[in-house]
């Protein structure tokens, strides 16, 4: 297992270099440079700007600039946001927590509902329940997330059941720990439902079709033949085999949760990375764009890595194949 982890980490090196290089190139291609915003400010003298050019090494060749940025980025020193007037990392920290929190909660909603619903649908294909689940899944697969967000926002305002925007209440600081947790959960519920239901719609179809396939296989027939109760056949045999491929899908899910949450964050006014990226793009705050892109990619890579390790943990064949590849 340790060898396997080492191998996976080793594979990440070119990926991280590539990601940072691409982020850097994208930002270089953008019109204007880091200091344009400051140049427009009449209170900042020419000399200060020239000093800053020196401090940030903006007069050096591009490749040196890239290496400097990369070395700093590896230590998570992501430069300075000129529009917010604070270090990019400080800015990203809070937002990152909010985004991860939102992604985890919406992921939980999606998975905890998708598995039972998928099984129920698979047990009686084409039954009324199955049809209902299929209709639900097609509807929400095709419903644009932002449109669903509009509807939910409207619902929240009309009923007052959910707060609209923000990650916690204004009086958050005065609450006890228990109330703090409840307050956070209450605030995360609206965006998490929007994102979770969207992801649930796709997942439930996959669980259903995999489960149907498993239920037709010989080992299920055998288990039934030897007289196992149907409950055990499904939960102990079919379900286990159904869930295996889903650990791979977990990796993709993380990607779509992160990416999907960005737009919903902006619409529901959830202070996460998505809002920050939009602000950065609108105000041409290039260090912030680059930092957001970098952190976004790192989150995804780490997510995929966790999914891979989980799969390797559960399936020794994969572990063995990969490690043998290294030793050979």
């Amino acid at each position: 297992m340790i060898l396997y982890i080492l191998k996976r980490l080793y594979q990440l090196i070119p990926l991280v270099v590539g990601i940072t290089f691409l982020s850097f190139i994208i930002v270089q291609l953008a019109p204007g440079d880091y200091l344009d915003q400051l140049r427009m400010n009449p209170q900042i003298s020419e000399k200060t700007i020239n000093d800053m050019v020196k401090v940030y090494g903006l007069d050096k060749p591009l490749i040196i600039q890239y290496i400097n940025w990369l070395l700093n980025a590896l230590r998570f020193d992501l430069g300075y946001s000129f529009s917010y007037q604070m270090p990019v990392l400080e800015l990203i920290k809070d937002r990152l927590f909010n985004t991860l929190f939102l992604s985890v909660v919406s992921g939980l909603i999606a998975w905890l509902l998708a598995i039972p619903l998928g099984i129920v649908a698979a047990l009686k294909p084409n039954s009324l329940v199955d049809r209902f689940i299929q209709v639900f899944s097609f509807t929400f697969m095709s419903m644009p997330g932002f449109f669903f967000a509009f509807l939910m926002l409207f619902f929240a305002v009309k009923t007052g059941l959910f707060p609209t925007g923000g990650a916690y209440s204004p009086d958050y600081e005065q609450l006890s720990l228990y109330e703090k947790i409840l307050d956070r959960l209450w605030h995360v519920s609206l965006p998490a439902i929007v994102i979770g239901v969207g992801s649930l719609a796709g997942l439930v179809r996959l669980v259903r079709s995999t489960m149907i396939e498993q239920l037709q296989s010989d080992y299920v027939l055998f288990a039934r033949a030897k007289g196992l109760p149907e409950r055990d056949v499904i939960l102990k045999h079919a379900l286990r085999n159904t869930l295996n491929p889903f650990i791979t899908i977990l990796g993709f899910e993380i990607a779509s949760l992160l990416s999907g949450s960005a737009l919903i964050e902006i619409i529901i006014n959830w202070p996460g990375m998505g809002m920050l990226m939009l602000d950065a793009v609108l105000s041409q705050d290039l260090y912030l764009v680059m930092g957001g892109l970098y952190i976004g990619a790192i989150m995804l890579i780490v997510g995929n890595l966790i999914a891979d390790l989980l799969l390797a943990k559960l399936d020794p064949r994969i572990r063995q194949r990969e490690v043998e590849g290294v030793l050979r």
């Binding site: 070119p14 990926l15 590539g18 691409l22 994208i26 019109p31 960005a262 950065a280 764009v289 990619a297």
Partner: peptide
């Protein structure tokens, strides 16, 4: 490797950043 790099970005973030490339 190139395709892996592209797929390592959450697509919405990449979309926003690429938008910043254009005026």
């Amino acid at each position: 490797r190139v395709s892996e790099i592209l797929m390592s970005f959450p697509s919405f973030y990449l979309m926003l950043a690429l938008r910043a490339v254009f005026p």
